[in-house]
Design a protein around this nucleic acid. Structure first.
Lengths: 147, 147
DNA sequence: CAGAATCCTTGCAGATACTG
DNA sequence: CAGTATCTGCAAGGATTCTG
């Protein structure tokens, strides 16, 4: 059965009765994966457990604040676990839970798709932008590339 | 080969040289799927082509503004196509492109995962919140449920 | 019907400083 | 080292109005 039908069936079930968007399970999951950092952190932890600072280094452009918060959210959802070692100074290790590992499979499929199709997407964007530029400035000025 | 390794390999390749986050292809794709609406729209269109108003009805809590914008973005990325029928009043039909359809497969995998594990995630949240409430109010006051 | 344009609010996220 | 706390901006997104 093609994926299309799997999704179609689900969709009909959702909308069947009152589709309460706030309770849609897919929303919750995709909102999480959609935020800038969750996915990258999960991917980083897919290799092996990491300490706080290690994750920061693995994901260079995340702020301490956002890292803490994202880790909390992932922990709250049961995707990662947090283990504190009472050393001095303290060290904390994060690792994927079984649930978190089970996410790797579909996540990997998505990442693979992204890589396989990034060129197509890029081309589509260029084409779209070119077409848009045409319609709004048929005789090109010097606008392109301007601020 | 387990998904874990697929992701691990990619991750190492990315971080190998200077990991320019802004050019990471996965970011672009996941940022799009992560926004509140793109995924729902794609799923709706998975069934069959829809007109503008139909999509609105299928995704009840989206504003006209956001729908227009999200459709534009999806079109720009080549995932959907837009066909205008010069009737009066005008009608516009959106449908998935081949590229968009190819996304259904991994997307379906993710949605299936979300559905299969929503109970586990929910339980994890409850447990986490309960534990958090304990540590910050060992002898419970009346705070829980307050504003 | 399908959208463009405008205003306006909010909550997310960055920077900074402090703590155990 | 691994966080918390606070302030502040800025931009995503909702409501509303106007048009072809």
């Amino acid at each position: 059965m093609p994926a299309r039908q799997g999704l179609a069936v689900r969709f009909e079930q959702w909308s069947a009765e009152a589709f309460d968007a706030s309770r849609c399970p897919v929303r919750g999951v995709l909102d999480r994966l959609g935020d800038k950092w969750s996915t990258l952190i999960v991917i980083a932890l897919a290799r092996r457990p990491h300490r706080f600072g290690e994750i920061r280094r693995a994901v260079p452009d995340i702020s301490k604040r956002m890292l803490t918060q994202t880790l909390r959210d992932l922990e709250r959802d049961g995707l990662i676990s947090r283990q504190v070692f009472p050393t001095k100074p303290p060290s904390v290790e994060y690792r994927l839970t079984a649930l978190g590992e089970s996410l790797l499979e579909p996540l990997n499929a998505l990442v693979a798709w992204a890589e396989a199709n990034q060129a197509r997407i890029g081309a589509a964007r260029v084409a779209f932008d070119a077409a848009a530029a045409m319609t709004e400035a048929p005789l090109p000025g010097l606008e392109v590339g301007g601020r």
